[in-house]
Simulated assay, not measured.
Amino acid sequence: MRTSWLLLGMAVSSWAATETVRLRRLPRLAEVAADLDTTVDPPGEATSPPCTLALLGDSLVSGVGVESARHALPSQLGLRVASLLDARVRVWVNARTGARAADVARTQVPALRDADAPVDAVIVSVGANDATHLTRPTTYTSALREAVVGAREATGAAVVLCGVPDFRGFRALSPPLRRTVHGYGTLLHHLQAGVAAQADAWFVPRDPAVCREFALDRDLMALDRFHASSTGVARLADVAAPVIAEAVTEHRDSTAAAS
């Protein structure tokens, strides 16, 4: 029996080492974080007051995999929210490639106090790196709750959590590893929904149709097969923008009613 466990352990270690080498050989894509802050006007004349969105998170927010800043998630969300609210939208970004929930809570949320305009909604997109690193569920939940509560305390704004992506389209990962990360990401997705409910935050769940698109359409992924392409980011923005617009509207209504 001991020999069997030893052989199994050697096999797993060998597989993990092979996967690590293979992943390190994948192309490293640059981010466009330096140009992500933007202001977007609605298609026609604005009929609603301008609003400010603050985006926190990982490489999905910092623009890895897209062609330019205008294709990145902050700009794509700004365009859609401006159209939905019929208002000018300013987007303020503080994100870092590789960030996990703990990084958002400890380094990105405190920076919200430096925003030079009142924030209407804080959008937090983090969890993919926690899934690939198998962050302990209790650690992830605690850090995410700290981020949500901290963001609200820093800004008084609505907080929107974006669900962990569906990893079935992440072809950079071998099928066994992809299944493992997908399963763990699904667990974190459920934990996110729980944190959002408990902390009175908005939640953007996975859209089943978009998940299928990512699993089947290679064009939705960037050259490294790990990050979303410009087309993929646009699809994710399609899902998140209506929730963000609704959060902004309800936050403004409740603020007006309270005053």
Rank of each mutant, 00 (worst) to 15 (best):
residue 162 C to I: 14
residue 1 M to A: 11
residue 30 A to N: 12
residue 64 V to S: 08
residue 155 T to M: 01
residue 218 R to W: 05
residue 40 V to K: 12
residue 200 D to H: 11
residue 40 V to I: 06
residue 158 A to Q: 06
residue 22 R to N: 03
residue 60 L to T: 15
residue 114 D to N: 14
residue 94 N to C: 14
residue 110 P to G: 11
residue 198 Q to E: 15
residue 147 A to D: 10
residue 11 A to E: 03
residue 27 P to M: 09
residue 37 D to S: 02
residue 31 E to L: 05
residue 129 N to K: 09
residue 163 G to T: 05
residue 29 L to K: 01
residue 87 A to Q: 04
residue 132 T to S: 15
residue 94 N to P: 06
residue 19 E to H: 06
residue 204 V to K: 08
residue 133 H to W: 14
residue 21 V to T: 11
residue 167 F to E: 13
residue 208 P to D: 03
residue 142 S to V: 03
residue 17 A to F: 01
residue 82 A to H: 05
residue 203 F to P: 06
residue 105 A to N: 11
residue 22 R to H: 03
residue 68 S to Q: 08
residue 221 M to Q: 09
residue 252 R to K: 06
residue 199 A to P: 02
residue 132 T to D: 13
residue 32 V to C: 12
residue 78 G to N: 07
residue 84 L to I: 00
residue 2 R to H: 13
residue 135 T to R: 10
residue 55 L to Q: 09
residue 7 L to V: 10
residue 97 T to P: 00
residue 99 A to P: 01
residue 237 A to G: 07
residue 105 A to K: 13
residue 166 D to I: 01
residue 176 P to I: 06
residue 193 A to D: 15
residue 186 T to K: 15
residue 172 A to C: 05
residue 148 V to T: 04
residue 145 R to I: 00
residue 127 G to M: 10
residue 126 V to S: 10
residue 206 R to A: 01
residue 24 R to F: 07
residue 253 D to Y: 07
residue 231 T to M: 09
residue 78 G to P: 00
residue 59 S to Q: 11
residue 112 L to I: 08
residue 130 D to I: 01
residue 8 L to F: 08
residue 50 P to R: 14
residue 180 T to F: 14
residue 215 A to E: 14
residue 220 L to V: 02
residue 107 T to G: 12
residue 171 R to N: 13
residue 70 R to G: 05
residue 217 D to E: 08
residue 42 P to R: 11
residue 258 A to D: 14
residue 94 N to K: 15
residue 5 W to C: 01
residue 211 C to G: 08
residue 132 T to K: 12
residue 129 N to I: 01
residue 238 D to T: 04
residue 220 L to N: 03
residue 178 R to I: 00
residue 29 L to F: 00
residue 223 L to C: 07
residue 70 R to D: 13
residue 98 G to W: 07
residue 231 T to K: 15
residue 36 L to Q: 02
residue 124 V to G: 12
residue 132 T to V: 13
residue 41 D to S: 09
residue 39 T to E: 09
residue 135 T to A: 13
residue 167 F to G: 13
residue 19 E to T: 04
residue 241 A to D: 05
residue 57 G to K: 07
residue 253 D to V: 01
residue 259 S to V: 11
residue 42 P to G: 07
